[in-house]
Design a protein around this nucleic acid. Structure first.
Lengths: 155, 155
DNA sequence: GCCATATGGTTTTATGATGCAACCACACAA
DNA sequence: TTGTGTGGTTGCATCATAAAACCATATGGC
């Protein structure tokens, strides 16, 4: 078998996320969905991707409960693709990708949009990772610990 | 030509990030690199991936200045792969992927590690997106604005 | 020095994934 | 009835990936 290796049973949560949205198009579909895109044709025209691939990705994300189909709001007989809470939970990942590009891209002048605070219209801050007590953490301030086994019922 | 569509010239910073690290393996390689892995063989054995693919990914990330090669620290005649600042800047993306899995995965009991604050050994908080004035922002509190054109020299 | 073995890759070959175009199904309008 | 637009599915060519074989360079024993 020469199939693409699956991360499905992997213990690493990063690998598990990539299993769901780590392909070439999924996050861009989510980006559009967060902007309010719902219809197949609208995804297809905005992203310029092949229709069969879009179809496969939408189906996969519905299977992963990132999207759900709804019976169409404008009366037409087709279905719409809406984000679930799990799908909206991808927002920080998109922000992190955006900010990495903004900070390190070799041609930042080609980036034409800014993410702003809707209330004030001012750019957002960089994503912050904090400790329980509120201290800002950088990479070196963190480490991985084995998770305590979930106790089954009582002790 | 039927090649995989490139996001290279895309104006969207998310697409630009995915162009560099949006493939199946790159982020897992970065994850290992953040843990201190430096050598080809070590990446290969820890990730269990094909050596040719690893070779191609390492080369690609060196091209993108995410990794850099160094002449080996332990005396052996081979080279090591070290993260650049741009590479270490991917850390928030990995944290975001991890936290999404922790929050929404269907089988969270399969996740065996926790990201903790090194100083206290306590789990970190969720990534926070804040406005300039410090307000916590959720998806709906944000929007995209066109970026003002970078002025060339004077006005 | 000479052979065995480990490390660090590259090459070869087979298959899965992707891209494009063509096709089908249905709704609606003329 | 025909035409048009939307929402897909199917076929086929090409690309990317996986697995294994292969090669080059150390390193170690003798």
């Amino acid at each position: 078998m020469v199939k693409r290796t699956s991360f499905e049973g992997d213990a690493c949560p990063i690998a598990r996320s990539l299993e769901a949205i780590g392909d070439w198009w999924s996050l861009l579909i989510i980006r559009e969905a967060l902007f309010g895109v719902r219809r197949f044709g609208e995804f297809q025209s905005k992203l310029g991707m092949a229709k069969n691939i879009l179809s496969a990705r939408l189906r996969s994300m519905v299977d992963h409960r990132i999207l759900e189909t709804a019976p169409a709001s404008d009366g037409s007989a087709y279905s719409e693709y809406l984000l679930t809470p799990k799908g909206r939970g991808l927002f920080p990942i998109l922000v992190a990708l955006r900010q990495w590009s903004e900070e390190f891209d070799d041609h930042p002048e080609q980036i034409t949009t800014i993410l702003v605070d809707r209330a004030k219209g001012r750019p957002v801050r960089k994503l912050e990772l904090r400790a329980e007590d509120g201290r800002l953490l950088s990479t070196d301030d963190t480490m991985l610990k084995p998770r305590p086994a979930p106790r089954r019922r009582s002790a």
